[in-house]
Simulated scan of single mutants.
Amino acid sequence: MIIQRYMDLPKFVGLVQTRSLYFAKMSAFEDALEGGLTVDDFFKTSNAPAHIDLAINDIWPRAAETADERASRLKSSKLAQSEVSARQFPTPFGSYPRDDAERLFPACREWIYVSCWHQSEYECAAMWPLYGRDKNSVCIFSTDEQLKEAIAPDASYDSLEIERVKYVCHINDSFSGNSLDPFIAKSKPYAFEREMRVVAWNSDLDLSTLPKNENSGLLLGVDLGQLIQKLVVSPHADPWFKNIVKKLCEDARVSVEVEDSAIRMEPVSDIYQAMSYNQSRKPDA
């Protein structure tokens, strides 16, 4: 599966010089719905609805109820409350009491790290201004398999998954039950991004004892030769920029193809231009 990462020059320089890929923690994302629950999944995760139901139906006195009947009912109610409190909800870090879901579930976003990629065989005009940001920017082409193999093992995580993001309505939709589902989902207005997401976390962490994560993310080492299939230069880049990208790669001893953006192609206007483009066609084109 072909994936792409659009980045400005400082980010690309950082990638090349550190040979590390930046993973942001989920709580740093601007979209507050990322890593959140749908309405249906909140009811499945939190004990609050069950406790409210027990309080309304079992605690208040009933008409014409005898003292013995009330004592028996309250005893049954306490047993039901104990059963409810014993329920747990799953997370990528293990299972925790549902009574603590509203406190602990958001903590997952503090300790799950993400690298976001765009899934497409061709470069995307909309991605350049959104994620390339500066006119002098590049797009890395890779594949999901290359990316996973390129990331070096690290003590910061023991779990790493590459998943296609699911676009959901947080009011009407539900997750499948996989504990990772909320962290590989985004709101439907972002569906145009066609995101592939690399998710890294340490499953041995105990959410109930962890403080707020003071780091904005982490750097994971990568094999650049394995990671980068080719580089495409922004269609808005200055004329000198392509040579800068080539020099950066040469200095880092990364042998990759650096191409101009397809968006920059001039329309075919004469036989010489048509012949020139014909010579550059790939064998399977």
Rank of each mutant, 00 (worst) to 15 (best):
A48F: 00
A64Y: 01
D100L: 15
N57I: 00
S46I: 01
R103H: 07
R70E: 09
A64S: 14
I59W: 05
E69Q: 15
E102V: 07
P97W: 08
D58E: 12
F105M: 00
S77T: 10
W60E: 08
R109P: 02
K78V: 06
V84Y: 08
P61G: 07
P92H: 07
A67M: 13
P92N: 11
Q88L: 05
D68F: 07
D99E: 06
L79W: 10
L104K: 10
A107Q: 09
F105H: 03
C108E: 00
I56T: 06
S82V: 03
S85W: 07
E110A: 01
L74S: 04
A64F: 01
K75C: 13
D68M: 08
E102P: 10
R87Q: 14
Q81P: 04
A67D: 11
A107C: 09
R109S: 04
I52Q: 06
P92W: 03
L104A: 03
E102H: 10
R62W: 12
F93Y: 08
A101M: 01
A86W: 03
A63F: 13
S46F: 00
A107T: 05
P97M: 08
G94V: 01
R62I: 11
A48C: 01
I59Y: 07
A48M: 05
Q81E: 05
R87S: 09
S46A: 03
R87W: 06
S82G: 05
G94Q: 07
